[in-house]
């Protein structure tokens, strides 16, 4: 069984400016000793900072790389997702790198941050990006 830990900066509003902002640096001392197989982290939002922060310190574990923002109506271009993953490959092997959403699409039942049609398209974009990445690096 794989055990993951998910961290985000809030997912209750579509107004990005009311959500938290900052990279993972200040959390590293807490994260490093955890007996966790995978850190599932937001990276589709610039509020999460640079991949180097975790790449340099947590690459002995897997990374669930957040590549789409669950709160936006626009579906991320496949090439944008591929580029995010390629940047993470500077620190992670392809088998350590998972691709996922930044957070859920409806953490609070009465506060879904998206609609099903857009959520589905975002999943399709992630899968398309994974196919391209496997053909290049798999």
């Amino acid at each position: 069984m794989r055990i993951g830990l998910h961290i985000c900066r809030g997912n209750w509003s579509k107004q990005e400016e009311v959500l938290l902002k900052g990279d993972y640096a200040r959390l590293l001392p807490a994260l490093q000793p955890m007996q966790i197989d995978q850190f599932v982290l937001e990276y589709a939002t610039p509020r999460a900072g640079d991949i180097d922060v975790v790449g340099k310190h947590l690459a002995d574990r897997e990374l669930g790389l957040g590549v789409v923002n669950p709160r936006t109506d626009e579906v991320e271009p496949v090439e944008y997702i591929v580029a995010k993953a390629e940047k993470a490959l500077e620190y992670y092997r392809p088998d350590q790198l998972f691709l996922n959403t930044d957070c859920g699409f409806g953490c609070f039942a009465s506060r879904s941050v998206n609609v099903e049609e857009v959520a589905f398209q975002k999943l399709c974009a992630i899968v398309e990006a994974a196919k391209i990445l496997r053909s290049r690096f798999g």
């Binding site: 998972f98 930044d102 699409f105 409806g106 953490c107 609609v115 999943l123 992630i126 690096f137």
Partner: peptide
């Protein structure tokens, strides 16, 4: 490699 998933909740 590059396994795909999501974080959990759906609209």
């Amino acid at each position: 490699t590059f396994l795909t998933t999501q974080v959990g909740s759906w609209p």
